[in-house]
Design a protein around this nucleic acid. Sequence first.
DNA 1: TAGGATGAAATTGCATACAATTACGCCCGG
DNA 2: CCGGGCGTAATTGTATGCAATTTCATCCTA
Lengths: 223, 223
Amino acid sequence: MQVGMRSDTNPTLADKLAAAIADGILNGKLPPGERLDEVGLAEQHGVSRTPVREALRQLAMSGLIDMRPRKGAIVSKATPEEIESLFVAMAEMEATCARLAAMSMTPIERRRLQARHEAMMALAAAGETEAYSDANVAFHSAIYAGAHNAPLAEYAMNLRRRVGPFRRAQFRMDGRLLRSNQEHDAVVRAIVSGDAAGAHAAMIHHVSLVEDAFEAFAAINAA
Amino acid sequence: MQVGMRSDTNPTLADKLAAAIADGILNGKLPPGERLDEVGLAEQHGVSRTPVREALRQLAMSGLIDMRPRKGAIVSKATPEEIESLFVAMAEMEATCARLAAMSMTPIERRRLQARHEAMMALAAAGETEAYSDANVAFHSAIYAGAHNAPLAEYAMNLRRRVGPFRRAQFRMDGRLLRSNQEHDAVVRAIVSGDAAGAHAAMIHHVSLVEDAFEAFAAINAA
DNA sequence: TAGGATGAAATTGCATACAATTACGCCCGG
DNA sequence: CCGGGCGTAATTGTATGCAATTTCATCCTA
């Protein structure tokens, strides 16, 4: 579910375009700083500029792109400080969701989270990076949902999308999978046992380490 | 500053329309559930439907209105449960900002927050509801800014806007001003002294009590 | 050669026109 | 009197056209 996305019984072209463009951004086909030409996108998708403009506005509000009047739109390009802020914000949002999840998840949700986590242990041990990455998104989404608070879950998911373009290849690092899984273990234990403060702390710890991985990655790339 | 709002050296019609419509919603001229007719808004503002539609999309992404394809837009109307979620989300966001502010505000920012708080004491004592309300927004905004994290500040402000239509007349209750000010005192003391956990707790307490005021207000209205 | 003025091309912003779906009143049948 | 089908009006979605600003290359000048 997406922030403010129009309910999708009959999605409009603008909605589909927004999804397609967002996909391109998250896939790296549209890297940060890339110019988003209205006529280009329109021709590329075989539509007129009107729905393209509406899609761009949607994406601008989500923070995925930047628009400046009369200057056009680009994929959001952030300074290192802004990227740092995004990671801090995401850590805080995830930690908040984890805290609420520890307080308000149902017993069934807790068991399912535990099962999900255990399944991921096998993936981590087998080094299945891709499958682990997908499962990881689902794992965090389960925690968002467990907070039982739609606005917070939407913000958390939105932030996760926004940092996406800046954290590619995070799991490529040696031992990252196993370490991630160990951190998940602390998070899951706290949530399952209803330890709100512990869940918060464990999640902040976890996401902050992901951030470290990014910093290292950025440093390597800069060299 | 608004989430994703286009930088405003030369704001577009859509941006100005979005601001105008948002203003109408926050002022109560456009109550929750009100239908937002595109041609009506266009004629009312003397523009065509195109910028109106773009403004509506912006507002939809901010959560202030709901759009359903081919069904039109309405001012967001929430169930009591959804309103509760909004208040919880706002409390969490504000508390997170307060926690970060306690950790990262500069000495100057701390002193200014203290001064702001002390000025509000006088307003509360004098029962100047309107001035206090304005100062209250500035007070909370100062804390958002003190978190030194633009994304979180934007989310917090956005949530504050979203709950606006559902918390009108909150300060009308007897003694609410003085109580609010006392709660602010706890928040300010924690932030100024760098007590992150205390700031978080005090802010959650404060915003939760505002929520209680809403609940009471809603109950009275229902009767 | 560097710098700035200039003009055309490209691009965005807005308005208008058309298409398609929905909403609503009306009539008819039961 | 009530409910369902039907047709028209109203409303939204999309395309196209025009105006205005920006951008970029070119040329002129110091």
